Computed example of a mutant assay.
Amino acid sequence: MNENIQLNNDVTMPSLGFGVFQTPPEETVASVEEALRVGYRHIDTAAAYGNEREVGMALLSSGLARDEVFIETKVWISDYGYHETLHAFDKSAGKLGVEQIDLFILHQPLPTAFDKTLDAYRALETLLADGKVRAIGVSNFMPDHLERLLDRARVVPAVNQVEVHPYFTQPEVQKADAANGVLTQAWSPIGGITSYRDTGTGSTFDDPVVTAIAEAHGKSPAQVMLRWHLQEGRSAIPKSVKAHRIAENFDVFDFELTAAQIREIDALDTGVRGGPEPADITLETFGRPIPEA
């Protein structure tokens, strides 16, 4: 049974979500169907992933009622701007096959065009007021981006989805989120990004601290890392296309890490980011059109 987290607007969200970042569209339907079969009730996608339609197909084929599954998706920077972001909702909802999206967030802060970011967030506020979304948030926002947003926003973001795993914990981001009542949600929560990006630190999956804790609990390193997130109060979004990994990543609710083990994992932080630096995201470099259908 998935644990729930109450967001700052009292909406309840399953703490553990299933992600489809870099999952090819042709593999998305089967992987999401398997995740829902295992017990996930929170699916995280994005317009930029190019697989919202396939997520919607899996939701439909699952036979689950719409209100049984929490759907989270993201607006890409190419669709920032007030009217553009309102239309981005229409595109995402149409592909997902839903009338209401549970959590709709901005994918990046776009520091070089922050006025567009603010206009996009204003559109999210409109969508929330109109009942088209149940909660709104942001992704990859550093403390200065969050501060600039909050200076103008009417609604505090419910979530900030950022890279967090044992080798990169972003304590200042988490501190800023917590101070403002924003839930930190982890992408690459089990350090998958450390296994295919050269961070100079190796992979979290092979870390001797993590593997020793896993052996002590009779669990896998991935399960230990996910449990670490949940016990520290974060939401986590693992991903996989392998059925046994999908099931394994969900099987994290029957054990607890000790306070000492949590401190050991916290101490692994290297401060080395695996993903792109948010300040480097620009329309010129990363902008690309999001298809209508």
Rank of each mutant, 00 (worst) to 15 (best):
E215V: 00
P238A: 09
D269E: 07
A247C: 11
K219N: 02
T199W: 01
D251R: 12
F205N: 01
E264A: 15
T201E: 14
A259I: 03
Q223K: 00
P238K: 03
A243V: 12
D254K: 07
F250W: 13
G202K: 04
E248V: 04
K242F: 11
A236H: 09
A243I: 01
S203Y: 00
A216D: 14
A243P: 13
A259L: 10
I265N: 01
T258K: 05
A214M: 04
E232A: 00
G200P: 08
A236T: 12
E215R: 12
I213Q: 03
E256D: 15
L230R: 12
R227F: 07
E264N: 14
R245F: 04
I237L: 14
F205S: 12
D198R: 13
G218F: 06
T201I: 14
S220W: 05
D207E: 09
N249G: 12
K219A: 10
A214G: 10
A267G: 09
I246Q: 10
D198K: 15
R263V: 10
D251F: 02
P221H: 04
F255T: 00
G202S: 10
A212G: 03
E248C: 07
A243C: 03
M225F: 02
L226Q: 05
I265E: 06
G218Y: 02
F253W: 13
L230F: 02
F250K: 06
M225Y: 00
A267V: 01
Q231M: 03
T270L: 12
N249T: 10
G200V: 04
P221R: 11
H229K: 02
T199F: 02
M225G: 04
T204F: 01
R227S: 00
D269Q: 10
A259V: 15
V209I: 14
A259S: 11
Q261G: 05
L257H: 00
A212L: 01
L230K: 03
A260L: 11
A222L: 00
I213C: 06
Q231A: 06
T270K: 11
A259R: 14
G202Q: 08
A260N: 14
I237T: 11
A247Q: 15
F253M: 08
S235Q: 11
V224H: 03
A267L: 02
P221I: 02
E256K: 13
E232I: 05
F205Y: 13
R245M: 09
Q223F: 03
K242W: 12
D254L: 06
D266W: 00
H229L: 08
A267Q: 06
W228S: 05
V210H: 01
V224K: 03
I265R: 04
L268G: 11
D206H: 15
V224F: 02
I265Q: 09
A243G: 08
I246N: 13
D251T: 04
S240N: 13
T270N: 08
K219S: 05
F205H: 14
V252P: 07
D269G: 08
L257S: 10
G233I: 05
H244C: 03
S220D: 07
P221D: 07
S240K: 14
S203A: 15
